[in-house]
Design a protein around this nucleic acid. Structure first.
Lengths: 120, 120, 120, 120
DNA sequence: GTGGTCTAGACCACT
DNA sequence: GTGGTCTAGACCACG
């Protein structure tokens, strides 16, 4: 399948981003086994070490855990998943508004753009 | 005062981003002289080479131009500025929606979030 | 009940360590039959191969011996047990001092810490 | 110079251990620049990546910090250093007693061994 | 086949 | 010359 990376950001951060997204959007469910490091590295067309590094960071924040020789799994801590989801959404919205504001587009105008889009 | 960089993205890209923003938000006006590379590098607490590299790319896309010995100036091509502004806004909005969608948040929910925020 | 492994050291080494300790502390007595590989692997929640590997090494240094079809037994060579016990203690004490010294804690301070602890 | 590693533990953990020791024993002082990753990898006769991994973990716990392009430095947070030092000492002493106890050597006997040694 | 560690060595951003 | 990222590929512990 292949996967497109952004070039402006280290690949391993993009992998973190991607898998985090899979988890908080429930495409990977709590306790579900992740694809093996090797499979992910194949899917992303990157070196296994790069995947390993990304997954390590996800483990550090508690989103996934490792069972020796069995693989890596999504945490069963649903509260944590929810919390990270909310954080992520909040951050995205804030970023969006901040950036728009920097370009000189205020709250009202942003709302209009978004709602217009909703009516398409 | 200094400027906060993101660490996850090359600094020169962030400088490009920042100056582009200044131009399309009309904080730097058409034909206005930019601060010197020296001053910018001081403001950003960054090596002059890094600023130089960023300005070069802005020149490549036509947003600024150089007058030998006089410095660098914002383009007077207002149509171009407007076009890049629109592109930028469009891209930001699209990105925003794409990301939200990936997390599983659709148009309706986004509208709600935005309206809630508007009422604060 | 399960057994807690350290993760920073190969499990089989930790099993060796543990059984060696049982023997020199006389929790497993000379000539006593060891639990079966099956039982040990169950107790340690570990693959039988891993236990097997550990026991093999203990047999190599003479602390246990195998009677075909009957199982594995603690050696009856009490002198050997005593010798290994002394070695082990000596090594532990030396290690302890070496480590403390590396952190910059000398004999006097160590004595004080130990005495303090004795008075608790 | 070369450095001897233990074989029973991943090298990067031993590097963490070693550098942590240098810091809490004040052989590396607060704010002091560490040798470069390359130099350390040369000193330890390991790959730079291995050193990098170790230093990353030390950065995660706050004992060192990185200045982009300038190098890595010991934290200036002396309270943290002191805290980690105390933790480390406490853990070593506890470990020592626990291990001795497992072999069947109680508090009193340990005290005697340690004090005897002090009188040598 | 699973994750974890390590090497050798390249390339990049930045000073 | 500094740290950071990445690849290609090997070897290990474990099941």
């Amino acid at each position: 399948m292949g996967y497109v990376f952004n070039g402006e950001m280290p690949i391993y951060l993009q992998i973190i981003e991607h898998i985090k997204t899979q988890i908080i959007s429930k495409k990977y469910l709590p306790k579900q086994k992740l694809p093996s490091v090797r499979d992910l590295s194949f899917e992303f067309e990157v070196n296994p070490n790069t995947v390993q590094k990304a997954l390590q960071e996800l483990e550090d924040i508690g989103l996934i855990f490792t069972e020796r020789t069995n693989g890596k799994f999504v945490t069963d801590n649903e509260a944590l998943i929810e919390k990270i989801k909310n954080q992520t959404v909040q951050q995205m919205v804030d970023d969006f508004y901040t950036r728009m504001a920097k370009i000189g587009i205020g709250q009202d105008e942003v709302s209009k753009i978004v709602l217009d889009r909703g009516n398409k």
